[in-house]
């Protein structure tokens, strides 16, 4: 059964908390700057974009973990959930900054924008899709949902595509930053989909030939 199978090294709680805390430093730092008038002329916009950028950065890290392992570079799979949750927390802060600091909780304005502007619809869709992924990022959900869990969490590739489009649209022109990060998201997302498809194909052909190569999804 999944939980008893492994020669998997689980990271210590301390490690995971440390990653989370360090991962939240960019947000904390800029929040402090913004609250103390150190973010320049348009602090809310700077903070909003900063949170979006770091969310994208952690999403790139999360998506890069599997290919890095497959290429034999480094195996960080045990930290992937933590990075994925950082993506979620940055998305929460990004959306909250938009609603509270930027739009001043003007719900009519928010509703008007997110229902009519593709830029915001795409971003919001990415956020909404992230929520169930974050909510099921625990061992209990993995056990309870079984195969469904794997299917659900493939949604991260859709999140990558949506986030990439939203990120591109956040710039008035195509810039090195916007195209670079969007390309990273698209390529890593596509690589993930390809890996899944090939893996499923192989598994259908002969499950016995590749034992335990991906313990998390073969259960």
């Amino acid at each position: 059964m999944p939980s008893r199978r492994a020669p998997v090294v689980f990271p210590s709680r301390l490690e995971l908390w440390l990653i989370t805390l360090i991962g939240l430093v960019p947000a904390g730092l800029y929040f402090w700057y913004g609250a103390h008038n150190q973010l320049g002329a348009d602090p809310v916009n700077v903070f909003e974009r900063w949170l979006g950028l770091w969310g994208v950065r952690f999403l790139v890290v999360t998506l890069a973990i599997a290919p890095l392992r497959d290429l034999g570079v480094i195996n960080l799979v045990r930290y992937r959930r933590t990075f994925g949750l950082l993506v979620f927390w940055y998305a929460v802060m990004h959306v909250a900054t938009y609603g509270v600091l930027d739009q001043h909780l003007d719900l009519r304005a928010v509703f008007g924008e997110v229902t009519t502007k593709p830029f915001l619809m795409v971003g919001l869709a990415a956020f909404v899709l992230l929520c169930p992924l974050a909510a099921t990022s625990n061992r209990w959900s993995i056990r309870t949902l079984g195969r469904l869990w794997g299917t659900l969490h493939r949604g991260v590739y859709v999140v990558a595509a949506l986030a990439g489009v939203h990120f591109l649209m956040a710039f008035k022109t195509y810039t090195v930053t916007s195209v670079g990060y969007a390309a990273a998201l698209f390529v890593l997302g596509a690589a993930g989909v390809v890996r899944r498809v090939r893996h499923n194909g192989r598994r259908r052909m002969s499950a016995a030939n590749e034992p335990m190569r991906r313990p998390k999804t073969t259960g």
Binding site: Q38, D42, A109, G112, E113, T116, K117, F119, M169
Partner: peptide
Amino acid sequence: VDHPRWSQGSERVIGSSGFFGAGR
């Protein structure tokens, strides 16, 4: 008349005031 990507109904008032003095 909105910009295709955002509303033009209101605007952020630029001024060195940090988050909590930032006007709209």
